[in-house]
Amino acid sequence: MSRPVTIVTGGSRGIGAATCVRLATDGHDLALGYVSNDAAAQEAAQAVRAAGARCVTVRADTSQEADVERLFDTVAAELGPVTGLVNNAGVTGPLGRLAETRTEDLRRVVDVNVLGYLLCCRRAARDMAANGGGAIVNISSAAATLGSPGDYVHYAASKAATDALTVGLSKELGPDRIRVNAVAPGIIDTDMHTTMGDPDRPARMASAIPLGRPGEASEIAAAVAWLLSPDASYTSGAILRVAGGR
Rank of each mutant, 00 (worst) to 15 (best):
S2R: 13
T9E: 09
G10H: 04
G11P: 01
G11M: 05
R13W: 03
G14D: 02
G16S: 13
T19L: 09
T19R: 04
C20D: 01
C20K: 05
R22F: 01
R22H: 04
A31R: 09
G33P: 09
V35W: 06
V35M: 08
V35A: 13
A40K: 07
A41W: 05
A45T: 02
A47P: 00
A51S: 13
G52N: 10
G52E: 06
G52T: 10
R59E: 14
T62K: 11
Q64Y: 00
E65R: 15
A66D: 12
R70M: 13
L71Y: 12
D73H: 05
D73Q: 12
E78R: 10
G80A: 09
G84R: 08
V86Q: 02
A89V: 12
V91F: 07
T92N: 14
G93N: 01
G93F: 02
G96E: 03
L98Y: 15
E100G: 15
E100V: 13
R107G: 03
G116P: 07
Y117N: 12
Y117W: 11
L118W: 11
L119F: 01
C121Y: 00
C121D: 13
R122A: 06
R122S: 07
A125W: 04
A130T: 08
G134T: 06
I136T: 07
S148L: 15
S148R: 08
P149F: 12
D151S: 14
Y155T: 10
Y155V: 06
A157V: 07
A160G: 15
A161E: 14
L165C: 02
V167G: 01
G174S: 14
G174V: 10
V183D: 00
A184M: 10
I188Y: 03
D189L: 10
M192Q: 14
T195P: 04
D198F: 07
P199F: 08
P199L: 11
A203C: 06
S207T: 15
A208E: 15
L211G: 00
L211E: 09
G212Y: 08
E216Q: 14
E216W: 13
E216M: 11
E219A: 11
A222K: 07
A223T: 00
A225H: 04
W226R: 01
D231Y: 02
D231I: 08
S233Q: 14
Y234H: 14
Y234E: 01
G237T: 05
L240C: 09
R241Q: 12
R241S: 14
G245S: 05
